[in-house]
Design a protein around this nucleic acid. Structure first.
Lengths: 357, 357
DNA sequence: CTGAAAGCGCTTACAG
DNA sequence: CTGAAAGCGCTTACAG
C-alpha cells in the first residue's frame, strides 16, 4: 500500500512492496538503502549483490542491479573504506613525470588497474626520499588496497611503513630476490654493461659515462659501465661525468661540451638517458664533431625522437609498458590473495643499435 | 586510579586522568578518541583543536596537539569525508601526461595545493570526452573539495555533473567570461595569430599550419593562424595539415615530409606543438632543406630542446606553471568561501623568436 | 568555550 | 541463501 501523503517521500522514488525504513537522507545522496528498498531486499543483500559476492540468489541480484541502475546509485568510497578498512585505491609512487619513461609506466599500470575496479593514487616523489616518506604516510592513511613503488631505495622510516602496513606491495623497474619481496623490472646493471660491451665491440676504448639525476638506477647503470670497462682493461674513472640536475636535452648538450673540452680523446659516450644523448647529438652537429667517426653516442630508454637524430641514436629499449602491466597484474593477484604468484619478474631489455655507434 | 587488570586495556596506551570510555578499537588504529582520552578532553574538542577551528582554549589545543603527536595520530580521511561530506581531495583532470606541458602544469598545481593540505587526484583523460566523463563520475563519488579541469569542451553529461555537483571549479589553459565560470589561461587563438603575424612580418606568404592531436586548443590556434592569414590576404586552406595522432618528434618529421612533398612552395610552417617542430627541424636537416632560408619553422609551448635545434626554434612560451599556480590558488579561495575573487585570469603568452624564422 | 548524541553510508561478523 | 545489529572514525548540529 502506497501512501502518497507520506511526508518522508521526497520525489518519485520507485516504491516496491518493501517498507520504507527511513526518510530520504539529509544529504540527498542516493544510498544503498534506497536501492535495497527499491529492490525489496535488505541493505546487506543489496551490498552483496552489487559487489558480486557469490551466494546471492541470481534473481535478487538482477533486481538489485536494475534498481541501482535506475536510481543512478554510486557507492560511496568513503563509507566503503570506513566499513571495510580498505579502499579501492592503489598508491603508485614514481620519481618524476618529466621523464616520459615514467609516464609510459604509469599509463600501463592504469590500463591494468582501472578495468579491475581500482583507482590509482599517483604520487610523484621528485627523487626525494623525504617526499616519498611523506607521500607514503599520507597515502597509507587512505587505506589503499595495494602499493606500487619504484625501486628499493627509501628512508628507514618509509621502509618501516611499507613493512608494517601489511599491504600487498610490488616494486618496479628493478628486481631483487628476497623473501616476501615482489618486484618487476630488469637488471639496470646488466643493461649498462651490455651497451658498454657493444661500444667496446665497435673498437672503442675511451668510453665515457655521462649522467644526470643520479638516482639509484642511474648508479646501477654506471656499475655496469664500470664492470664492462674493467673487464676490458680500459676503465678510466675520469671519464665518469655526473650531474645531479634532472636530465634534459639542454643538460645533455652542456655535459657533452664539458666532456669533450676536458677529454678530447673520448671515442664513445654512454648517456644514462636518451634526452641527454639527443642534446649531445645536436651539440656535436653544431660543433662539427662527427658521430660516430670521432665519437660514438649511445643513450638509454629509446625515447621519442632518438630515431630522428642525425645520425639516429643507439639506445637500450626498456620495456616500461611491460613493467607496468606485469607489476599491476602481480599486485592484483596479491590483493586477491592468490597463492603461488611469482615474486620476481625480469622483463629484460633490448639493445637498439643505430648509426650513432 | 589506573586498573592494570582492565581487560579492555590492550597495551600501554598513555592513560591520563580521563576515564576510559571504550576499549581500544578492533582495528588497532589510533583514533581521535585515543587522542582525546590522552589529552583529557572530549573527542569533539580534540577534533576542533586538531582542525584549528577557532574558539578552543589555547591550553587545550596544545594538550591535544601534544597527545596527537605523541601517539602518532593520523586522521582517517575516509571517516572525515563520510562525516563532513567533503574530502581533502582536489580532482585534477588533464588530457595527457606525454605532453610535458601538462606535467609542468600539474607540478605547479601540486606545489600550491599540497602545502594547503589538499591532495590531488590526478585523472588523465587521453583527450577523450567519454574518459573524462567516467573520471568525473568516479572522482565526484569521492566528494572532492574542488575541481580543476582542462578547457571547456566536454560531453553534456559531464557538464551537467560539473554544474550540479555544486563544487568549486576552475578551468585551466583557456579563458572564458561567463557567469559563475572561473578560468585561468590565455587566448590560444591570439597566440596562434601572433606567431603567424610574426611569420608574415618576416615576409613569408605561404604559411602552413601543421598539427597533431586536434584537441580544442589546437583548433583555436588554427583559428588564429587562419585569421592572421585572411587579414593578410594569403590564406590557403590547402596548407592546413592535421593528424589526429598524438604529437611527437616522429610525427613531426613525417608530417613535414608529407607537406613539403605536396606543397614545395611553402615558405613557413607553424606547428601546434614544439615536439612536431623539433621532428620537422631534424627532417629538414636530413633532407638538406635550409631553415629558415627555404622554409621558416615555428613551434608552440617552447619545450625542452627547442633552443638546441639547428637552427634554434622560434616558439611561443606558454606560462603553464603560472596557469597551474593561479588556478590552484583561485580554487583555494573558492574552497574557503572567499568572496570577490577574480573569475578570469589571463596569464598571457610570449613570442620567443629564434633563428628558425 | 565545551560536550553528549546522532549520523554520515557502507560492510563485518554473527545468526538463522 | 538472507537479514538485524553493530560498528568503522570522524563531524554536524544542538545544547549548555
Amino acid at each position: 500500500m502506497d501512501r502518497d501523503d507520506d511526508p518522508g517521500a521526497t520525489g518519485g522514488a520507485p516504491s516496491a512492496a518493501a517498507p520504507r525504513r527511513t526518510a530520504r537522507r539529509a544529504t540527498g545522496r542516493i544510498t544503498l538503502d534506497d536501492v535495497a528498498r527499491a529492490a525489496g531486499v535488505s541493505a546487506i543483500t543489496a551490498s552483496r549483490a552489487l559487489r558480486g559476492t557469490r551466494g546471492v540468489d541470481p534473481a535478487l541480484t538482477e533486481r538489485v542491479q536494475a534498481a541501482a541502475a535506475q536510481l543512478g546509485y554510486v557507492p560511496d568510497p568513503a563509507a566503503r573504506a570506513l566499513a571495510s578498512a580498505h579502499s579501492q585505491h592503489v598508491a603508485v609512487l614514481i620519481p618524476m613525470l618529466s621523464n616520459t619513461l615514467f609516464v609510459e609506466l604509469l599509463e600501463s599500470v592504469q590500463r591494468t588497474l582501472t578495468p579491475a575496479g581500482y583507482q590509482t593514487l599517483i604520487g610523484v616523489t621528485h627523487y626525494r626520499a623525504d617526499e616519498e616518506e611523506a607521500l607514503l604516510r599520507s597515502y597509507l592513511a587512505h587505506r589503499p588496497a595495494g602499493l606500487l613503488l619504484t625501486g628499493f631505495d627509501r628512508t628507514p622510516a618509509a621502509q618501516a611503513l611499507v613493512d608494517h602496513c601489511g599491504l600487498p606491495c610490488v616494486h618496479m623497474m628493478e628486481t631483487r630476490e628476497a623473501p616476501g619481496i615482489h618486484s618487476v623490472g630488469f637488471s639496470q646493471q646488466a643493461a649498462g654493461r651490455a651497451i658498454t660491451e657493444h661500444l667496446l665491440s665497435r673498437g672503442r676504448r675511451r668510453i665515457a659515462y655521462v649522467a644526470g639525476q643520479m638516482d639509484p638506477r642511474v648508479m646501477q647503470r654506471a656499475d655496469g659501465w664500470r664492470a664492462a670497462l674493467r673487464a676490458a682493461g680500459c676503465h678510466d674513472p675520469a671519464l665518469e661525468l655526473m650531474d645531479p640536475a634532472p636530465t634534459s636535452m639542454a643538460l645533455g648538450g652542456r655535459l657533452f661540451r664539458e666532456l669533450m673540452a676536458r677529454h678530447p680523446d673520448v671515442d664513445a659516450i654512454f648517456f644514462c638517458n636518451d634526452d641527454l644523448a639527443q642534446g649531445a647529438s645536436l651539440a656535436a652537429l653544431r660543433m662539427g664533431i662527427e658521430v660516430p667517426r670521432q665519437v660514438a653516442l649511445a643513450g638509454f630508454n629509446d625515447l621519442d625522437g632518438s630515431d630522428q637524430m642525425i645520425p639516429p641514436l643507439t639506445s637500450v629499449r626498456t620495456p616500461r609498458a611491460e613493467v607496468g602491466a606485469q607489476a599491476a597484474s602481480l599486485l592484483l593477484s596479491l590483493m586477491r590473495g592468490q597463492q603461488g604468484v611469482r615474486a620476481t619478474v625480469d622483463v629484460g631489455f633490448e639493445l637498439v643499435v643505430r648509426q650513432s655507434s
